[in-house]
């Protein structure tokens, strides 16, 4: 077989970014959540989005998945403009994305195997036997072999994360999105999940976007880290550069120090009283 033969989809002749975000602004009601986000994800890269609670990282993830409509700005995923795409093209794009949601989002009435087969049933016309083997292969990959007949309620937290990962990769996605993949897990299981993400990227060549507030996990798996703070990108850089940053808010995040926002007295009192000056 030629050296060019691949098991992961070709990133494209121009090696263009798989995700491009330009000037993304979004609001929840009057409150600005994301404020001018610019970001790129390269083919085969693991980008970790970090930030404290309320920094906007989950909102950003939902935008990358096309689940939210921005106030302004543009997002291109695998070359498709999310503001312009609809119908069949949007469905085709979603087939090339895998998502492992924070809580697993497994269907409680379906077995583990049925959950993992679901994208194949929905999006392909493969023989059922082929779908079953594909799902079982992914269970092997995430080390859940033998648990395929269990129901989600019978799984531990770590097993749910693994099952969610298996479902996310069953279609061999070009981009894998993971929302807090190791949150709430004991250190041993969390480390195993991190290693799994690295192994998947190495074997399948996919790009990976991980949202997490787990510093150890981010440092272990990231090629680059995007630090979000109050809806803005503070920095996008390598692990070494982020760790060496002397930016006070990044230092706070790395040192796990609580927020100490400057108090805007006018805004604070207006918020409390509803009375504008």
């Amino acid at each position: 077989m030629s050296a060019a033969a691949q098991t992961a989809a070709d990133p494209g002749p121009d090696n263009a970014p798989v995700i491009e975000v330009r000037g993304l602004v979004t609001h929840y009601g009057p409150r600005k959540i994301l404020d001018g986000i610019d970001l790129e994800v390269q083919p085969g890269e693991i980008l970790v989005i970090m930030g404290g609670s309320g920094s906007g990282k989950s909102t950003l993830l939902n935008h990358l998945l096309g689940l939210l409509v921005p106030t302004s700005g543009a997002i291109r995923v695998l070359g498709e403009d999310l503001n312009a795409i609809d119908g069949v093209a949007r469905t085709l794009l979603r087939q090339r994305l895998g998502v492992a949601f924070q809580g697993g989002a497994l269907f409680s009435s379906l077995s583990v195997l049925e959950n993992i087969m679901l994208p194949l049933i929905e999006h392909t016309r493969l023989d059922r036997k082929t779908m079953e083997i594909m799902a079982r292969l992914k269970l092997e990959v995430v080390n859940l072999a033998g648990f395929e007949h269990l129901m989600p309620a019978e799984l531990s937290g770590g097993m749910i994360k693994r099952a969610a990962l298996a479902r996310a990769i069953v279609m061999d996605p070009r981009i894998l999105f993971c929302d807090e993949p190791s949150a709430g897990l004991d250190p041993v299981v969390a480390t195993a999940i991190d290693q799994l993400i690295l192994d998947l990227r190495a074997a399948m060549g996919m790009s990976v976007v991980v949202v997490t507030h787990e510093l150890e996990s981010a440092f272990k798996i990231a090629d680059r880290i995007c630090v979000l703070d109050r809806g803005k990108v503070l920095a996008v850089d390598t692990v070494a550069a982020i760790r060496a940053s002397d930016h006070p808010r990044i230092r706070n995040l790395l040192n796990r120090q609580g927020e100490d926002p400057d108090l805007d007295v006018d805004a604070y009192l207006e918020r409390l009283t509803g009375i504008d000056l």
Binding site: M1, S2, A5, Q6, D10, M131, M134, L137
Partner: peptide, 18 residues
């Protein structure tokens, strides 16, 4: 003979397994 295969995904591997 897979020498001229340019890409094989999980469904292809599943077919080989079966």
């Amino acid at each position: 003979d897979l020498s001229a295969v340019t890409y094989i995904d999980s469904s292809g591997i599943a077919s080989l397994v079966e």
